[in-house]
């Protein structure tokens, strides 16, 4: 099985600063992983990119920026400062992104991500979109708008004791075991089994530590998916 991984640029800088003993403000811990349906191109996993700051299944922020308001149970999406006409097309899927983070390299505050996507029916103006069905998520405003070609499913899980092990031998290795248990992450938004291609680790500031892609893993209740990642220094 082809599995590729890379250490993110933002985390390399952290390591370099620790090496130079600039430890005063470096105290990051690996606390979370995300596994998602993004990270593939026509069914082929993409090569991991050290510049990513979030997993691909969270969608990409709109190029034109701005914030959006989603209303639960309504098809109307309202933009503020957005350029929907240039950024969004009918058939795209959109959702509110996470709350912006003040931490450098973080795509958003951990825990503020939204799972529910809405499919775009019409783009009425730069500030208005109509979804083809009522939005199934909660009412939210003031969030950046994220876009994807499909309602990509993301599963997030906090790492627990023993998941992150450190070996100080040379070369030093941090080994992170991520387990998606049999009972977890078996249903995506469209009601099917999630089709996973990617996985990423995050630290306590929400900065992505490492990005992994792999061949298609269809998750169902009969499968426990284990991925062991080694960061070698």
């Amino acid at each position: 099985m082809a599995v590729q991984a890379i250490v993110q640029e933002n985390w390399r800088a952290i390591l370099a600063r620790i090496f130079s003993r600039d430890v005063a403000d470096v105290h990051q811990e690996i606390v979370l992983f995300k596994i998602g349906e993004g990270g593939s191109l026509a069914g082929v996993p993409i090569t991991p990119d050290a510049t990513f700051n979030d997993i691909q299944s969270e969608g990409t922020p709109l190029a034109g920026g701005g914030t959006v308001g989603f209303t639960g149970g309504s098809t109307a999406v309202v933009g503020t400062g957005t350029t929907f006409l240039a950024d969004v097309s009918p058939g795209d899927w959109i959702k509110p992104g996470p709350v912006a983070s003040i931490n450098f390299g973080s795509a958003g505050n951990p825990g503020t991500e939204v799972d529910e996507w809405g499919e775009v029916l019409t783009v009425n103006s730069d500030l208005s979109i109509t979804l083809n069905a009522n939005y199934i998520g909660a009412t939210l405003a003031g969030r950046p708008c994220h876009k994807a070609s499909a309602p990509l499913f993301t599963f997030r899980k906090t790492l627990v004791g023993g998941d992150v092990l450190f070996d100080s031998a040379v070369p030093a290795v941090v080994e992170i075991t991520t387990i998606v248990a049999a009972g977890e992450a078996n249903l995506d938004q469209l009601g099917g089994n999630p089709q996973f291609y990617e996985l990423a680790l995050f630290d306590n500031l929400g900065v992505m530590v490492c990005y992994v892609t792999f061949d298609l893993q269809t998750k169902s209740g009969a499968v426990q998916l284990n991925t062991i990642i080694q960061l070698v220094f």
Binding site: I18, F19, V160, V164, L165, F166, F233
Partner: peptide, 20 residues
């Protein structure tokens, strides 16, 4: 450097790098 032994049973560890 700043590794400390924070790697035992804590839910997460300080991954301070002992650089290679």
């Amino acid at each position: 450097l700043d590794i400390k032994a924070l790697v035992t049973s804590s839910p997460s560890v300080l991954v301070a790098a002992p650089v290679g």
